[in-house]
Amino acid sequence: MQKIKTALLSYGMSGKIFHAPFLELHPGFELTGAWERSKHLIQDDFPLVKSYPTLDAVLQDDVDLVVVNTPVDTHFEYAEAALLAGKHVLVEKAFTTTVAEAEALRDLADEKKRKLAVFQNRRWDSDFKTVQELLDKDILGDIVEAEIHFDRYSPDLSAKKHKESASAGAGILKDLGPHIIDQALVLFGFPESVYADIRITRDYSVVDDWFDITLYYPTFRVRLKASFFIREPLPSYIVHGKKGSLIKSRGDVQEDELKAGKKPMVSDWGVEPVYKSGVLHTEIEGSTVRENIPTLHGNYYGFFDALHKAIRKNEPVPVSAQDGVNVMRIIGAAIESNIQKKPIKL
Results as ranks from 00 to 15, higher is better:
Leu25Thr: 00
Arg250Met: 02
Asp73Glu: 14
Val131Gly: 14
Ile230Glu: 15
Tyr52Trp: 03
Val58Phe: 06
Asn121Gly: 09
Ala170Met: 12
Phe119Thr: 00
Ala334Asn: 09
Val89Thr: 06
Leu224Ile: 07
Ile139His: 08
Leu108Tyr: 07
His240Asn: 15
Thr70His: 09
Leu135Gln: 15
Glu77Leu: 05
Val91Ser: 06
Lys248Glu: 04
Lys3Phe: 11
Ile311Ser: 02
Arg290Leu: 03
Leu23Tyr: 07
Ile339Glu: 11
Lys39Ser: 04
Val253Tyr: 02
Tyr52Glu: 08
Phe190Tyr: 14
Glu111Ala: 15
Lys174Val: 05
Val186Lys: 03
Asp182Thr: 04
Met1Leu: 14
Trp269Ser: 08
Val327Gly: 06
Ile17His: 13
Ile42Asn: 00
Val207Cys: 02
Val239Gly: 01
Thr70Gly: 04
Leu246Ala: 01
Lys276Asp: 07
Gly33Ile: 06
Ile172Asn: 15
Tyr237Gly: 05
Arg106Lys: 12
Glu80Cys: 08
Pro21Val: 00
Ile198Val: 15
Ala226Asn: 15
Glu24Phe: 02
Asn292Glu: 02
Leu25Lys: 14
Ile330Ser: 00
Lys93His: 08
Leu296Asp: 09
Leu41Lys: 10
Pro21Gln: 02
Ile330Leu: 06
Gly324Lys: 01
Ile335Ser: 15
Ile344His: 03
